[in-house]
Design a protein around this nucleic acid. Structure first.
Lengths: 146, 146
DNA sequence: AAATTTTATATCGCGTGCGATATATTTTTA
DNA sequence: TAAAAATATATCGCACGCGATATAAAATTT
């Protein structure tokens, strides 16, 4: 019995899953120099755009759950990248802020997107194709969320 | 100082990372009925296409490392989905085979792709868009691999 | 105002995912 | 053929990622 829909080559989900891991692998040597993991880098990107946010805002922006983000932030606190303080307005809420060290990393991190692009074979992939890919993925994300 | 390239909304990598997790989440309730995780489902897809393969072949097809696949296969062996035997031709190699239970799951699993498609908001995403997305992702995967 | 519900964060357990490393077997080289 | 290199799998440690559950504070209802 043949089930065409069960072939790996016919899947959309598998390439997304594989691409996600390949990208994390590609980032890894670049982020290692800053002593960061990819999820930690994402948290910093959120904070560089908007410092002093709640755990809740971070989970929403990164589409992660608290049980992932809380330990992640605790590790980042130990590394001296961020601080965690209870909000005075709402004692339930945690305010996450950049330390000087976390803020200063931004300058070095700014080099990373270009360095990563260098890892892609330009013959295989154009800028237009990447932008189209990004937009279609955002469509897919919306379609799953709905 | 503003770094446009560090904004989440300008990233391609983040949507891939987010989409990957959202897809795994979408699969989860469907796979739960078969008592499978997404990576286990992927291993079965490999075996349904081609039974009696080595660990090496599985790692290559799924683009995973041995240190991920070996424990994964051991858990699947405990669940009675597969068997693991040393190859007679090459004692280093492990031959992974489907059990009857593993083989029989194929019929139920054949329903999953259609069920998953039902979770996507059709207004947001057309079939053509999905196929184009799949092809562009495969381009990206090749571009990273090179 | 007291009781109930909601919201925000944290904890626990388990399954990945991977860098680094180990072990055994096969292949290649000297 | 003995030594060295390559190949296949396994083990260890750590960081996610998430379902289930807990706890405390705030908001809502009664």
């Amino acid at each position: 019995m043949e089930y065409e829909q069960l072939k790996l080559s016919n899947q959309v989900c598998f390439p997304i899953y594989a691409a996600s891991r390949l990208i994390t692998r590609a980032y890894q040597p670049l982020l290692e120099k800053l002593d960061l993991t990819y999820p930690q880098y994402l948290v910093l990107m959120v904070l560089w755009e908007n410092d002093r946010v709640s755990v809740n805002e971070i989970t929403h922006k990164l589409i992660l759950n608290t049980n992932t983000v809380t330990p992640l932030l605790k590790r980042m606190e130990v590394q001296g990248l961020i601080t965690r303080k209870r909000s005075e307005k709402d004692e339930r809420s945690m305010v996450i802020s950049l330390t000087k060290k976390g803020l200063n990393l931004q300058e070095q991190a700014a080099e990373i997107p270009m360095q990563l692009a260098g890892k892609l074979d330009v013959d295989d992939l154009s800028i237009d194709e990447i932008i189209d890919l990004r937009d279609k993925l955002n469509h897919l994300i919306q379609a799953i969320k709905n």
